[in-house]
């Protein structure tokens, strides 16, 4: 209130409406393509769950408790990856070829907020992709024993994990050229898939210290470990506060780099 004349103009209600408009468009398009979206979200984790949780269990190669360990990991994996895919690929194509995003860049909305919308939209898809794994888990696995008191904290972790995934997708989508996107997906996505402590508990990697260090750099580790702490506390897991802190840091880091990259691509 001290210097109203020099204060930057406040974002009025118009920007909120424009934000909802842009988000609404993305959600409407997802709704139209719901069939392909749901299959993209479900097929891979379903098979992971089925082979590791059911087939290997029946054959006696994994202990019966393994599925308990795996399901929270797959929730974490889907939250992050579905979000990454929702933001990264369309942005690479939009910025390089189709320019379809231009109409939204010309909406009465700050360019940073268009970037934030991309993160939020990716996160919503990630969250959805993660939540649909719950009924699938109940259907495929013989027994899912979750500590229901941990659900609120689990939900918070999934939200943060999805947001981190959306932000990481923004980084990839704005920094990678379309010619390299295949390579990036192969050399970045696959390692992320297997270093996120999805298929194993992080703390039991003591004998593979170097691998544990790599896993510690993967944000999915903190979603997986946090979920285990909340839902299946009998499995060894990292403390909840550490997971929360790491995920907030990942959101902030990827968000900052991603939004910068987005503005750089959007404005000459």
């Amino acid at each position: 209130m001290s210097a109203p004349t020099t204060a930057p103009r406040q974002a009025g209600p118009g920007q909120g409406r424009a934000f909802l408009g842009v988000l609404g468009r993305d959600l409407a398009v997802t709704g139209k393509e719901f069939g392909s979206f749901i299959s993209q979200v479900l097929v891979q984790p379903f098979f992971l769950l089925f082979v590791f949780g059911v087939v290997l269990g029946q054959l006696g190669y994994v202990t019966p408790g393994y599925a308990q360990l795996l399901l929270p990991g797959l929730l974490a994996l889907n939250a992050f990856f579905v979000a990454v895919q929702a933001t990264a690929l369309p942005l690479v194509i939009d910025f390089s070829y189709t320019k379809e995003i231009e109409d939204r860049l010309l909406a009465p909305l700050s360019t940073r907020l268009v970037a934030v919308e991309k993160i939020v939209f990716g996160a919503l898809r990630g969250l959805f992709g993660s939540l649909v794994m719950i009924p699938v888990g109940y259907l495929v696995l013989d027994e899912v024993a979750w500590d229901l008191a941990g659900l609120p904290f689990a939900a918070l972790l999934l939200v943060l994990g999805s947001l981190a995934g959306g932000a990481a997708g923004l980084v990839i989508g704005t920094l990678v050229s379309p010619r390299r996107i295949n390579v990036v997906f192969a050399v970045v996505i696959t390692p992320l898939l297997f270093t996120g402590s999805t298929q194993f508990p992080f703390l039991q990697l003591g004998n593979l210290r170097w691998f544990q260090v790599i896993c510690a750099l993967n944000p999915i580790t903190y979603v997986s470990e946090g979920l285990r702490g909340a839902l299946t506390p009998s499995v060894p897991h990292l403390p909840g506060w550490l997971c929360l802190l790491a995920l907030v840091a990942a959101c902030a880091l990827f968000g900052a780099i991603g939004i910068r990259g987005f503005v750089r691509r959007a404005i000459d």
């Binding site: 408009g21 842009v22 609404g24 468009r25 398009v29 189709t98 109409d103 909406a107």
Partner: peptide
């Protein structure tokens, strides 16, 4: 041309209007 190909012709107009409140 930078039309939104995830939407039909009318959708392009309607959503543009939505962005602009």
């Amino acid at each position: 041309p930078n039309l939104d190909r995830s939407l039909d012709a009318r959708g392009n107009l309607v959503w543009h209007a939505a962005y602009h409140g």
